[in-house]
Design a protein around this nucleic acid. Structure first.
Length: 586
RNA sequence: GCCCCCAUAGCUCAACGGAUAGAGCGUAGCCCUCCGAAGGCUGAGAUGCAGGUUCGAUUCCUGCUGGGGGCACCA
């Protein structure tokens, strides 16, 4: 990649200078891409940084660096200059740009991938919905982030396994099963009757009984005791409610599978809290002997205060492992299944403080696992009217949201002819809906809350997934027409005298691999979104300003067609990294 | 009360400590006899407050204000 070459050159230049000037570190020296193309394809603040350390004028340092850079510049660089306050700007040569363009076309689906993480084993845990509870936009968010991170790591050559961790035991389950028992009794219905219902209806039923149980738990002391007792029974596996439990869990899981299918996620590993509880409890007992944990009021707690965190209960006074202990049991279990170099856990940020405690405990119990583990948290999904809550029923169900957007996509397609069959239209509507939802979630930097307004923020135009899909489809349409007319992709020839729209697009496209690498390194899906958005905008400006197939000259036509082909690749590959499909037509 | 996160245009979001703070929506207009108008073009419009560090601060530090999350047997 061009950037790596430049960084090396730049460091050489600085080193050569620092022999004369004394010690200067590389810490603050950056090589970035300027927003304004007049400032080159790459730019560095090296002279400014060095100037303050050597007490010289920035431009003077700049000239010194420039002398070295000009002497050693690779042929990918046409020109180097000192500008502004002392920035050093690099301009790529036409040959280098032509080469990159050709690469972007030739590499096809591989464009944007690298081998920098080849051989690295990565496990990514995400989505983590709980059986018996609703799959809402929060889960959709976690899924979009986790799937995107997985794909970004894969694009760096890593071997990635996706894991899903689901709470099939615990109070929420007890509440739902208790609610189930009650509701069946009240309505004198049998479980067998319920099984005749459709899957969504059964899942809806589960949502209702959970709400019922949760409400009773808070309002009715007797019910609360019953639920706690039921929780323990479910945990031990032996209960008269076993059938209700098993059925409910199965319905939930089947339903989740349906959603993963739509979202394009396949989990290699599926874990349940019920599977890791015992193991976690043993680890806690072991830790108790090592004085890592303490007994307190009949429970086993981790004294987080000693480490600047807060203390938390790992095994409750009933002797049951809490979520914290289960998480402790999960880590080694994952490692046995897949000896990872890196374990990424994606969750909402409401559990960050709690995760710090768990990871601290893990550090003391199994430091080698802790070192390989990273917790990535994303912001909360909030409605304009306030926060989501499954207890109050103020949630946006994941599938309802997809259906709503899909409906809007159908309306738009109904207005344009397009010549698509009914089935094709349905497929496209699905792709657009998933694309719109995923993009709207991924475009925001992780850690920030998302104000989710289904009316406004989930747009099918402007800064949206469908805009990218539309632009990609437009590119493909031109390529199809070229193919029909017997025009094939040539090698880039004369690219002198480019119009500004052509030049801007050309100088944007080759950055794609760098952007992907950065996004993977920084766990930043939104960086990919931003880049694709800019690229699509540049393409559309270019498209409106210059005819491709009807270009004035054949050479120009061939060159523009390459721009179209490269844009098509970058957009489709980028969308794929986001976990979004790009339709051929829409 | 303590801890963590956040604050940029009317709204939703960008901007490795750098050059004129970028987009989308909305708003005022313009562009389909030309490869796809889910599109393009032109306007108006923003860094919560007060200090500090720095050649340079939306970015780093401190305080304040406002919002969100968490703080022992839920996850």
């Amino acid at each position: 990649m061009i950037r790596q070459e430049l960084v090396k050159l730049l460091h050489d230049a600085v080193r050569q200078l620092s022999v004369e000037e004394g010690k200067v570190g590389f810490g603050d020296i950056a090589l970035e891409r300027p927003e304004n193309l007049e400032h080159g394809d790459y730019s560095t603040n090296a002279a400014l940084v060095l100037a303050s350390k050597t007490k010289k004028a920035p431009r003077e340092v700049g000239e010194l660096l420039l002398a070295f850079l000009e002497k050693h510049k690779p042929k990918t660089i046409e020109r180097v200059e000192v500008a502004g306050a002392g920035f050093i700007n690099f301009f790529l040569s036409k040959e280098a740009l032509a080469e990159e363009l050709e690469l972007a076309v030739k590499e096809g689906e591989k464009y944007g991938t690298s081998k920098s993480s080849k051989g690295k084993k990565v496990m990514v845990e995400f989505t983590d919905p709980n059986p018996f509870k609703e799959f809402h936009v929060g889960h959709l968010y976690s899924n979009a982030v986790g799937e995107c991170l997985s794909r970004l790591m894969e694009a760096q050559g890593a071997e990635v396994k996706r894991a899903n961790y689901q709470g099939d035991v615990g109070m929420h389950v007890a509440k739902a099963v208790w609610g189930m028992e009650r509701k069946l009794a009240e309505e004198a219905t049998k479980l067998q009757e319920l099984e005749k219902l459709s899957l969504p209806e059964r899942v809806h039923f589960l949502g209702q009984v959970y709400a019922k149980g949760a409400a009773a738990f808070e309002q009715d002391k007797g019910a609360a005791e019953e639920i706690a007792e039921l929780n323990k029974k479910i945990f031990e596996g032996a209960t008269e409610a076993a059938e209700l439990y098993e059925k409910g869990k199965a319905w939930s899981l089947e339903y989740f599978e349906r959603i993963y299918e739509r979202l394009g996620t396949r989990f290699e590993f599926s874990y349940f809290e019920s599977e890791v509880g015992e193991r976690g409890k043993k680890l806690v007992e072991e830790g108790l002997r090592k004085n890592i944990f303490q007994k307190s009021e009949g429970a086993v707690v981790f004294p987080g205060e000693e480490y600047g965190l807060h203390s938390r209960v790992f095994v409750n006074s009933q002797g049951l492992p809490t979520y914290e202990a289960k998480e402790l049991g999960l880590a080694p279990r994952k490692y046995e299944d897949f000896p990872y170099d890196l374990s990424i856990i994606v969750t909402g940020k409401e559990v960050v403080d709690y995760f710090k405690v768990v990871l601290k405990a893990l550090e003391l119990l199994a430091p080698e696992l802790r070192k390989k583990t990273v917790h990535i948290s994303h912001g909360m999904v909030r409605l304009p009217s306030g926060k989501l809550s499954s207890r109050t029923g103020k949630v946006v169900a994941g599938e309802e949201l997809l259906e709503e957007i899909k409906g809007r996509a159908r309306e738009i397609m109904a207005q344009s002819e397009g010549g698509l069959s009914l089935q094709e239209k349905e497929d496209v509507a699905e792709m657009v809906a998933v694309g719109a939802v995923k993009y709207s979630l991924l475009r925001i930097a992780l850690g920030k809350d998302i104000i989710f307004d289904t009316e406004k923020s989930l747009s099918l135009e402007g800064d949206s997934g469908p805009y990218l899909q539309y632009t990609a489809a437009r590119c493909k349409s031109i390529l199809r027409k070229a193919n029909e007319q017997g025009i094939s992709l040539a090698k880039p020839r004369d690219i002198l005298g480019l119009a500004k729209e052509e030049s801007a697009l050309l100088r944007m496209l080759y950055r794609f691999p760098e952007v992907v690498e950065d996004a993977a390194e920084n766990f930043a899906p939104h960086a990919v979104c931003g880049f694709l958005m800019e690229t699509a905008q540049l393409f559309n400006s270019f498209y409106h300003a210059h005819p491709v197939l009807k270009a004035e000259r054949e050479e120009l036509r061939d060159f523009r067609l390459l721009l179209v082909a490269a844009t098509a690749n970058v957009l489709s590959n980028g969308l794929r990294l986001l976990g979004v499909k790009a339709p051929e037509r829409m």
